[in-house]
Protein backbone atom coordinates (compact mmCIF):
# COMPACT_ATOMS: atom_id res chain seq x y z
CA UNK A 1 0.00 0.00 0.00
CA UNK A 2 1.26 3.49 -0.90
CA UNK A 3 1.65 5.64 2.19
CA UNK A 4 1.74 9.42 2.36
CA UNK A 5 5.57 9.43 2.55
CA UNK A 6 5.67 7.99 -0.95
CA UNK A 7 3.36 10.67 -2.37
CA UNK A 8 5.18 13.37 -0.41
CA UNK A 9 8.55 12.37 -1.93
CA UNK A 10 10.46 13.76 1.05
CA UNK A 11 9.06 17.24 0.43
CA UNK A 12 9.91 17.25 -3.29
CA UNK A 13 6.48 16.08 -4.51
CA UNK A 14 5.79 19.33 -6.37
CA UNK A 15 8.89 18.74 -8.49
CA UNK A 16 8.89 14.94 -8.89
CA UNK A 17 5.22 14.29 -9.75
CA UNK A 18 4.92 17.03 -12.42
CA UNK A 19 8.01 15.48 -14.08
CA UNK A 20 6.36 12.04 -14.11
CA UNK A 21 3.06 13.51 -15.31
CA UNK A 22 4.71 15.52 -18.10
CA UNK A 23 6.68 12.43 -19.17
CA UNK A 24 3.55 10.29 -19.41
CA UNK A 25 1.85 13.12 -21.30
CA UNK A 26 4.71 13.32 -23.83
CA UNK A 27 4.69 9.52 -24.28
CA UNK A 28 0.91 9.58 -24.79
CA UNK A 29 1.13 12.46 -27.26
CA UNK A 30 3.77 10.58 -29.28
CA UNK A 31 1.57 7.48 -29.60
CA UNK A 32 -1.53 9.55 -30.43
CA UNK A 33 0.20 11.76 -33.04
CA UNK A 34 1.95 8.80 -34.72
CA UNK A 35 -1.33 6.90 -35.04
CA UNK A 36 -3.07 10.05 -36.29
CA UNK A 37 -0.40 10.54 -38.95
CA UNK A 38 -0.74 6.93 -40.07
CA UNK A 39 -4.53 7.15 -40.20
CA UNK A 40 -4.35 10.38 -42.25
CA UNK A 41 -1.83 8.83 -44.62
CA UNK A 42 -3.99 5.71 -45.04
CA UNK A 43 -7.04 7.86 -45.84
CA UNK A 44 -5.08 9.88 -48.42
CA UNK A 45 -3.61 6.74 -49.99
CA UNK A 46 -7.04 5.08 -50.22
CA UNK A 47 -8.44 8.25 -51.79
CA UNK A 48 -5.61 8.27 -54.33
CA UNK A 49 -6.30 4.62 -55.22
CA UNK A 50 -10.04 5.29 -55.64
CA UNK A 51 -9.36 8.37 -57.80
CA UNK A 52 -6.92 6.45 -59.96
CA UNK A 53 -9.52 3.73 -60.49
CA UNK A 54 -12.34 6.16 -61.29
CA UNK A 55 -10.12 8.11 -63.73
CA UNK A 56 -9.19 4.89 -65.46
CA UNK A 57 -5.54 5.78 -65.02
CA UNK A 58 -4.84 3.21 -62.33
CA UNK A 59 -1.75 1.26 -63.21
CA UNK A 60 -1.34 -2.36 -62.30
CA UNK A 61 1.98 -3.98 -61.57
CA UNK A 62 1.48 -6.27 -64.57
CA UNK A 63 1.36 -3.36 -67.03
CA UNK A 64 4.38 -1.55 -65.64
CA UNK A 65 7.76 -1.69 -67.28
CA UNK A 66 10.66 -3.00 -65.27
CA UNK A 67 12.10 0.51 -64.81
CA UNK A 68 8.85 2.07 -63.65
CA UNK A 69 8.20 -0.86 -61.30
CA UNK A 70 11.67 -0.45 -59.78
CA UNK A 71 11.01 3.28 -59.39
CA UNK A 72 7.65 2.73 -57.74
CA UNK A 73 9.19 0.12 -55.45
CA UNK A 74 11.70 2.72 -54.35
CA UNK A 75 14.79 0.88 -55.53
CA UNK A 76 15.64 3.71 -57.94
CA UNK A 77 15.32 7.32 -56.90
CA UNK A 78 14.86 10.06 -59.43
CA UNK A 79 15.26 13.34 -57.58
CA UNK A 80 14.36 15.43 -60.62
CA UNK A 81 10.89 13.96 -61.04
Amino acid sequence: MMDSAFWNMGGYARYVWPCIGFTLGVLGWNVWSARRLQARALTQARRAVIMARSDGTGRSAATQTGASRARSDGLVRSERT
Binding site: N30, V31, A34, R35, L37, Q38, R40, A41, L42, Q44, A45, R46, A48, V49, A52, G58, R59, S60, A61, Q64, R69, S72, D73, G74
Partner: peptide, 24 residues
Protein backbone atom coordinates in the same frame (compact mmCIF):
# COMPACT_ATOMS: atom_id res chain seq x y z
CA UNK B 1 6.73 5.47 -32.46
CA UNK B 2 9.35 5.81 -35.22
CA UNK B 3 7.99 2.67 -36.94
CA UNK B 4 4.40 3.95 -36.76
CA UNK B 5 5.35 7.43 -38.03
CA UNK B 6 7.55 5.88 -40.71
CA UNK B 7 4.60 3.91 -42.08
CA UNK B 8 2.63 7.14 -42.30
CA UNK B 9 5.50 9.02 -43.98
CA UNK B 10 6.04 6.20 -46.49
CA UNK B 11 2.32 6.15 -47.32
CA UNK B 12 2.20 9.93 -47.78
CA UNK B 13 5.25 9.91 -50.06
CA UNK B 14 4.31 6.80 -52.04
CA UNK B 15 0.57 7.22 -52.45
CA UNK B 16 0.89 7.20 -56.26
CA UNK B 17 2.98 4.00 -56.32
CA UNK B 18 1.46 0.74 -57.52
CA UNK B 19 2.30 -1.26 -54.37
CA UNK B 20 0.15 1.10 -52.29
CA UNK B 21 -3.02 -0.43 -53.73
CA UNK B 22 -2.41 -3.81 -52.12
CA UNK B 23 -1.06 -2.20 -48.94
CA UNK B 24 -4.10 0.00 -48.27
Amino acid sequence: VLCTRLRGEVLLRERQASWIRSAV
